[in-house]
C-alpha cells in the first residue's frame, strides 16, 4: 500500500502532469504561448468542476460561465471598490458562487435532464444581462480595468513565469482534489446515481443532496478560475461570460470523455489548442467545429473497433437510457 513502487504506480499520471506543467516556464520563452498556458490552467479548473458535475454525476449545466463571472467580478469589485485583500476576495467570491449554485440547484436538481439545462441556461443569461445592465456596479460593456495583480509578500504574480507556477499549482491541487473525490465513497455515489438514480437511492444515496453538493463544488472551482483570470488579465468585461463560453465548457467535458476526471485534461487541451489551429484556417469557424463535434461525439460514437472503441463504450454506457419503471 505505501511502498514507493505502489505509490508511483497509482500516481504516475498525476506526477508526470505536475512535473510537465510546472516545468513549462523553463522550456517556453514565447510570451503568447506562456499566456495561453496560464489561461489553460484556469480553463482546466472550470472543466474539472464541470467534469465532476456532468461526467461523474450526469447533470448538465449550460450556465457555468456565470459562475466564472461571479469569481471574476466578485474579485474585481471587492478589490477595486472595497480594497479587500485579493486572496480574501477570491474566497468570498467563491462562497458567493457556492451560495448562488445552492439557490439555483435546490429546486432544479430535483427535476430531471433538460430542466436543469434550461434553468442554468436562463441563469447564465440573467447574469450576463446583469453584468451589462448594472452599469453603476459593473461599468456595463466597458468592463472593469485596473484590477491589481496578485501578490504574496515580495512575490509579484504579474510576472508571467511566476504566475504560471502559481496558477498551475492551484489547478493541480484542484485536480488532485477532484481525482480523490471521484475515487471515494462520494465519487462512487455520483457514478451510481448517474447510471440509475432509483437504484442509487435504494442503496442509501441521497441523490438530490449529492447532486447539489457537486453542483456547488463545480461553482466554486469555476469562481476560483474567474478570480485568477481577472487578476492576471487585470481587465474583465461581460463578453467573456456569455452562453457560448458555457457551451464550450460543456464541449470540453464531452470531448474529454465522461469516464474519469482525467477527461477534463484532454478536453481542456483540445478546446484550447484546437481553436489556435482552426483560426489559421478560418477565423470564425472555431465554434462551428465545436458545435459539429458535440453532435458527432454523441451521435456517432458507437465505433466497433479502433482507439475510439473504449471511449465509445464509455459513452454508450453513459447514455444508455434506463427503461422507465
Amino acid at each position: 500500500m505505501s511502498t514507493p513502487v505502489g505509490f508511483w504506480n497509482r500516481n504516475w499520471g498525476f506526477i508526470t502532469l505536475a512535473v510537465v506543467a510546472l516545468a513549462m516556464p523553463l522550456l517556453v520563452a514565447d510570451a503568447y504561448l506562456l499566456s495561453i498556458l496560464a489561461f489553460m490552467a484556469t480553463r482546466f479548473m472550470v472543466v474539472i468542476g464541470l467534469s465532476l458535475l456532468l461526467g461523474q454525476a450526469g447533470q448538465i449545466s449550460l450556465g457555468h460561465a456565470a459562475f466564472v463571472a461571479i469569481g471574476a467580478y466578485g474579485s474585481a469589485l471587492l478589490v477595486t471598490r472595497l480594497s479587500m485583500n485579493p486572496w480574501l476576495a477570491m474566497v468570498v467570491a467563491a462562497v458567493l458562487a457556492a451560495g448562488v449554485a445552492g439557490v439555483i440547484g435546490i429546486p432544479t436538481l430535483k427535476l430531471k435532464g433538460h430542466y436543469l439545462a434550461m434553468a442554468t441556461l436562463g441563469f447564465g443569461e440573467i447574469v450576463f444581462i446583469l453584468l451589462v445592465q448594472l452599469k453603476g456596479l459593473t461599468r456595463g460593456t466597458d468592463g472593469i480595468t485596473g484590477i491589481p495583480p496578485l501578490t504574496l509578500g515580495s512575490l509579484d504574480f504579474s510576472q508571467p513565469r511566476l504566475y504560471h507556477v502559481l496558477v498551475w499549482l492551484v489547478a493541480l491541487i484542484v485536480f488532485r482534489l477532484a481525482l480523490n473525490l471521484s475515487e471515494s465513497r462520494v465519487g462512487r455515489s455520483l457514478k451510481a446515481l448517474r447510471r440509475s438514480e432509483l437504484a442509487a437511492e435504494s442503496l442509501g444515496v441521497n441523490a438530490s443532496w449529492r447532486k447539489l453538493q457537486v453542483f456547488m463544488i463545480s461553482a466554486v472551482f469555476a469562481s476560483l478560475a474567474g478570480s485568477f483570470d481577472a487578476h492576471y488579465v487585470q481587465f474583465i468585461s461581460p463578453d467573456s461570460y456569455g452562453i457560448t463560453f458555457s457551451v464550450i465548457l460543456v464541449c470540453s467535458v464531452v470531448i474529454g470523455g465522461f469516464r474519469s476526471v482525467w477527461g477534463a485534461l484532454w478536453g481542456t487541451l483540445a478546446t484550447v489548442i484546437l481553436p489556435e489551429v482552426i483560426k489559421r484556417i478560418h477565423e470564425d469557424a472555431v465554434n462551428l467545429v465545436f458545435g459539429i463535434l458535440l453532435i458527432l461525439i454523441v451521435v456517432l460514437l458507437p465505433v466497433k473497433s479502433g482507439p475510439l472503441a473504449r471511449v465509445a463504450h464509455d459513452v454508450r454506457c453513459l447514455f444508455h437510457r434506463e427503461e422507465r419503471g
Binding site: 460543456v250 464541449c251 464531452v254
Partner: peptide, 15 residues
C-alpha cells in the same frame, strides 16, 4: 437518453 439529446441539440445550436 436526455443527456445525449441535450448535448446534441446544444451542439446544433452552436453550429
Amino acid at each position: 437518453g436526455v443527456l445525449a439529446q441535450v448535448i446534441a441539440t446544444v451542439g446544433a445550436s452552436l453550429a
